[in-house]
């Protein structure tokens, strides 16, 4: 069953001159952990704000748990949890006061749904008298998640919860999301980190207000038929320049320890690469055929768009 349905949603700003969402359509299934992956400015936040009834689209339809985002906006507000990208709790209330406030607004109590937030809340409970404005980034994030969960929402919208968060804390955050999913909550999460795609059931790749592709990670990767190689040598920056200048190169980008090189399918494009690099003075050259990962694929889809 589809929990979130988005049909041909378009949203513009500045009297139509800035396009935030361009005819976007997809669905999120009930109980799914769905990732919306794209850079800042791609349109992710506009979509979240439309789905949480905080923004009205120019055209198109959308519903959450069967409720229309325009007609039934009050119903939607009762059953969704929303954690905006920008910290939006009351800075001059304490942890405890913020949580009680949100529970009360939704007509429930912290005790009633404590089980749902327990695992996250115990990490910040020792500081419960501290004002939210004085918390570190990671603690604010945990508090915001608790407040978004306290009324036991059917659908949870998390807008870039891991931006600026270090790899260890990011991992822990995703483990928490995995356990919330097990409780049957539908989760829609946005992120600029491509590597988080593997932690989602399905993903939508978004860039410049358009959806590039929607599928499981495996599904998206399997459609990418790039002729791709990982190349490294002793002088990586020079290597990048030389690979880009190689006549059979379609594109070449740095990928950590290696450069990922896309060659044309010409018969000699690979064969003549090693002699070319040797002639350019490279040493300890390694060239390996690889399957594209999510970043390769995102870059390719961006270039094709």
């Amino acid at each position: 069953m589809a929990e979130v349905i988005i049909q041909n949603i378009t949203k513009t700003y500045e009297k139509g001159t800035v396009k935030a969402l361009d005819n976007v359509s997809f669905t999120v299934k009930s109980g799914e952990l769905f990732g919306l992956i794209g850079a800042d400015g791609a349109g992710k936040t506009s979509l979240f704000r439309i789905l949480t009834t905080l923004l009205i689209p120019d055209s198109g339809k959308a519903s959450v748990a069967g409720f229309d985002v325009i007609q039934d906006f009050k119903k939607i507000r009762e059953i969704v949890g929303y954690m905006p990208g920008k910290f939006s709790l009351y800075q001059d209330l304490s942890i405890e006061e913020n949580l009680n406030f949100f529970a009360t607004v939704f007509g429930t109590t912290v005790e009633e749904n404590y089980e749902l937030i327990r695992e996250i809340y115990v990490q910040i409970e020792p500081f419960k008298k501290r004002l939210a404005g004085q918390l570190s980034g990671g603690m604010k994030q945990k508090l915001a998640l608790c407040c978004a969960l306290i009324h036991e929402p059917k659908v949870l919208f998390l807008d870039e919860p891991t931006t600026g968060v270090d790899p260890v804390s990011r991992k822990e955050f995703w483990e928490m999301l995995g356990r919330l999913k097990e409780r049957g909550i539908t989760i829609m999460v946005s992120t600029p980190y491509m590597d988080e795609a593997k932690l989602c059931d399905r993903i939508a790749l978004i860039q410049n207000s358009k959806i590039l592709d929607i599928d499981t990670l495996e599904g998206i990767l399997s459609k990418n038929k790039q002729n791709l190689f990982a190349v490294n040598s002793d002088k990586m920056y020079q290597l990048l320049k030389d690979l880009r200048a190689y006549p059979n190169t379609i594109s070449c980008f740095a990928f950590g320890q290696k450069h990922h090189l896309q060659l044309n399918s010409g018969e000699n494009s690979l064969k003549s690469l090693l002699p070319y690099l040797k002639q350019k003075g490279h040493t300890n050259i390694s060239i390996k055929a690889i399957s594209p990962d999510i970043e390769d694929t995102f870059i390719k889809l961006m270039q094709d768009a």
Partner: peptide, 10 residues
């Protein structure tokens, strides 16, 4: 490079 797309990041 926080939050920018993979091409711009590179």
């Amino acid at each position: 490079t926080g939050g920018v797309d993979p091409i711009t990041r590179r």
